[in-house]
């Protein structure tokens, strides 16, 4: 009566998922079949770019045909030329580097504060009672409303911009960390305690991974807030950065540079989003919606 003898029969009964049978199209070796398969493979990657590409083409045609006044909206080609010119100067890279530095410094500090506050209030009823209602009240203030005050406090130096970003990103991360931890299945925590996990092991193996999906939602939200705050802060009070480049261009009526700045923000926002998605795929590969995506 050994279990090893019983095991295989049990396994058969459970039914392992069968591998997919080969598709019929895979055997289609005609040129037509090959082209079709190539298109099928490319379609998911090219489809999202169709609309931006069409927009760009019609915008360029409109500008060339004289339907769009170049003083109001320059053609894509002009924007491209402006980008080239500013890159050749080294000006664009400098502004970009300064903006990114501010953004990620603010995100790191604000995110850190939000994370720590979330951990503290989610694990201690006392701290929740003490802090949560104050934090909720503070959260109700649009952080950009602080801008005039912040300029008085910090002038137009780096601190002002970083401070505003810190205020903006801390709350989404705080809220999502708090809810992520509170939403962990108490049954799993019970299991972990009766299976001998100490406090540290419980945090590392159960609470942090359990709260991670929610924390990452907070991070994605914070990334949006981060760029938005940066635009406003740089346009109002700065002597460098993309926002400064845009507001400076307005003074000089350089519409091409203004459009370039807007496009840069769109690009940076998209990059941040791609980065956040990568994190989700890497860290949340255990979730069924990411099944197979990480491998």
């Amino acid at each position: 009566m050994t279990t090893s003898a019983d095991a295989p029969s049990l396994q058969d009964g459970s039914g392992n998922p069968a591998s997919h049978p080969p598709r019929c199209e895979a055997g289609d070796r005609t040129p037509r079949g090959r082209i079709l398969r190539l298109l099928q493979g490319l379609l998911p990657q090219t489809l999202p770019w169709c609309f931006p590409f069409l927009l760009l083409i019609s915008w360029q045609i409109g500008s060339m045909a004289g339907w769009i006044n170049p003083r109001i909206l320059p053609s894509p080609l002009e924007v491209f030329v402006a980008a080239f010119r500013l890159t050749a100067d080294g000006e664009l890279q400098d502004h970009l580097a300064v903006s990114c530095m501010r953004a990620f410094t603010g995100l790191a500090i604000g995110g850190g504060i939000g994370l720590l506050l979330g951990f503290a209030t989610a694990t201690s009823r006392l701290l929740e009672n003490l802090l949560d209602s104050s934090l909720q009240m503070f959260r109700a203030i649009p952080h950009l409303a602080l801008t005039p005050l912040v300029i008085i406090w910090f002038g137009i130096g780096e601190e002002a911009k970083v401070f505003l970003i810190v205020c903006g990103v801390a709350f989404p991360i705080y809220l999502n960390t708090f809810h992520g931890i509170r939403a962990i299945d108490p049954q799993l925590v019970e299991m972990a305690t009766v299976y001998g996990l100490g406090r540290r092991a419980l945090w590392r193996q159960v609470i942090l991974p359990g709260a991670l999906p929610s924390i990452l939602v907070g991070v994605r939200f914070s990334l949006g807030v981060m760029w938005m705050t940066l635009i406003v802060a740089e346009a109002i009070a700065a002597s460098s950065g993309i926002g400064y480049m845009a507001s400076n261009a307005r003074e000089l009526m350089q519409t091409d540079v203004m459009v370039l700045s807007i496009l840069l923000y769109a690009l940076l926002g998209k990059l941040a989003d791609v980065f956040a998605r990568r994190m989700e795929h890497g860290w949340l590969s255990w979730r069924s919606e990411y099944a197979g995506a990480a491998t």
Binding site: L188, A192, V194, V206, P209, W286
Partner: peptide, 22 residues
């Protein structure tokens, strides 16, 4: 050690890591 009505496996750990918990 106790076995519950629900398996209570940690969804973010592989089956092997779940068995090795603690």
């Amino acid at each position: 050690r106790i076995m519950f009505q629900e398996s209570r496996l940690l969804p973010w750990k592989s089956v092997l890591a779940n068995v090795g918990i603690g």
